[in-house]
C-alpha cells in the first residue's frame, strides 16, 4: 500500500452526500489508467477498467468514499453551531475534538457544559450529541452566519500517523482504505475487464451502492471495507469477532448479508493456498454495501474482504499494515480469478 496515497485520501473531507472532493481526487489519480468513468446521480464514481480480455462475468469492486461526520443543524444566538450526526458515531467520541466546517475548513471545537458544573451522576453519563455545540469563536448568530450555513459538513481533525512500526491511525480509514486499494488496482494491468465503484452515502444506509449497482449490473460484487474487531484485553474468541493483525476478514454473514458459500470458500481456500493471512468473523456483526448489491437487478453474488480497524467510526481509526497487505493481495487475486468463476 502506498501510505502517502492513503494519507491524502484520509485527509480529504467527505461526509455522506458530500463526497465531491474525494471524487475529484480519485479521478485525478486514475485518469489515464482506465477506459472510462462517470459520476452517478447520488455521487458515486463508477470506473470501467479494460483488461486484456473481456470475461464472461462482470465483476465489480466496491469501496465507499464517505466518512462519518456531522452537519450543522442550527446556529444559536451566541454564535455556536448545533449539529446532527451524518453516519453513526458513538456520542462519546465527539466532545472535546477539533473539527473543520464546510468547504473553507473553518476551524472549530466541540464543546459542552463544563465538567465543574455537572452533578456526580452527570460526570459518569454519556454526553449526547444534541447537548454539544461547535465553538468557532463567533459571538453572535450574524457573525457565524457569515461563515457557516445550515447543512454545512463537519469533519474531525486527526493526524494520519504511524502507531508503532506496523499500524496506522487516521480519520476516514473507513473506507478510504478500500478506495486506496481500488486506485492501486486500477493503476495496474489487469487480465480481465473490471468495474470499480467508489460509492457515496454508505454510512447512512448503503444509498450510493443502490444506484451504482443498478448502473453497472454486476454478476459478482467484491466489497473492500473495514470492520470492527472486538479484540480488547480480556476478550477472546468468539466474542472478539475478529482481531487486528490476523489478516483479511472474509465473513460468511453479517447483519445485512448472507454471503454465497462458494465465494466465501473460494476466498478462504485461495488465501490459505497463497499464504495470505485470512480470518472470518466469529459473530454476526456489522454490515456493508453488499447489503445493497445482493438485491439489485436480480442480485449480485457478494464477497466482502475487510481490514479489521479498531475505533471504527471515530477520528482515530487504527489499522494494521499486515492486514492491509492481505486485503490488497486477495483483492488482486479476485480480479484475476472471479471473472471466470
Amino acid at each position: 500500500m502506498d501510505l502517502k496515497l492513503l494519507e491524502k485520501l484520509c485527509e480529504l473531507n467527505g461526509i455522506p452526500g458530500d463526497e465531491g472532493d474525494v471524487v475529484d481526487f480519485i479521478v485525478s489519480e486514475i485518469e489515464g489508467h482506465c477506459e472510462s468513468w462517470q459520476v452517478d446521480p447520488l455521487g458515486s464514481l463508477i470506473v470501467f477498467k479494460k483488461g486484456k480480455e473481456t470475461p464472461k462475468k462482470r465483476v465489480l469492486f466496491s469501496a465507499h468514499m464517505d466518512e462519518v461526520g456531522m452537519m450543522v443543524s442550527y446556529i444559536t444566538d451566541e454564535g455556536l453551531l448545533k449539529v446532527v450526526q451524518a453516519g453513526g458515531i458513538d456520542d462519546r467520541a465527539i466532545f472535546g475534538r477539533q473539527v473543520q466546517i464546510g468547504k473553507n475548513r473553518i476551524p472549530g471545537v466541540v464543546g459542552a457544559k463544563v465538567l465543574h458544573h455537572l452533578t456526580d451522576e452527570e460526570r459518569g453519563k454519556a454526553l449526547k450529541t444534541s447537548k454539544m455545540y461547535i465553538d468557532i469563536g463567533c459571538t453572535t448568530r450574524e457573525e457565524a452566519e457569515a461563515l457557516v450555513e445550515i447543512g454545512d459538513p463537519v469533519c474531525f481533525v486527526s493526524d494520519f500517523e504511524m502507531l508503532g512500526k506496523n499500524r496506522i491511525k487516521g480519520k476516514a480509514l473507513d473506507d478510504r482504505f478500500g478506495c486506496a486499494v481500488m486506485i492501486e488496482m486500477i493503476k495496474k494491468d489487469l487480465p480481465y475487464d473490471c468495474w470499480f465503484c467508489f460509492t457515496s452515502q454508505e454510512e447512512i444506509g448503503l444509498k450510493g451502492a443502490w444506484s451504482a449497482g443498478y448502473i453497472v449490473n454486476p454478476d459478482i460484487a467484491v466489497i473492500l471495507e473495514t470492520t470492527t474487531p472486538g479484540d480488547l484485553p480480556g476478550v477472546s474468541a468468539p466474542d472478539d469477532c475478529c482481531r487486528l493483525g490476523k489478516g483479511a476478514v472474509v465473513p460468511f454473514m453479517d447483519r445485512a448479508t448472507l454471503y454465497p458459500r462458494n465465494l466465501y470458500k473460494w476466498a478462504h481456500t485461495t488465501a490459505k493456498e497463497r499464504g495470505i493471512a485470512i480470518q472470518t468473523k466469529t459473530l454476526v456483526a456489522g454490515g456493508n454495501d453488499a447489503g445493497a448489491y445482493q438485491k439489485i437487478r436480480g442480485g449480485a453474488a457478494c464477497l466482502n474482504i475487510s481490514a479489521p480497524c479498531r475505533c471504527l467510526h471515530s477520528a482515530t481509526v487504527i489499522a494494521d499494515l499486515g492486514d492491509i497487505d492481505a486485503v490488497e493481495k486477495l483483492a488482486l487475486i479476485a480480479a484475476e480469478e472471479l471473472p471466470n468463476f
Binding site: 500517523e161 502507531l163 459473530l283 475505533c311
Partner: peptide
C-alpha cells in the same frame, strides 16, 4: 509515543 484510547466494539 502517540496512542489512542480504544473503544469497545458495538457488539460487545
Amino acid at each position: 509515543i502517540p496512542g489512542v484510547v480504544l473503544t469497545r466494539a458495538p457488539h460487545l
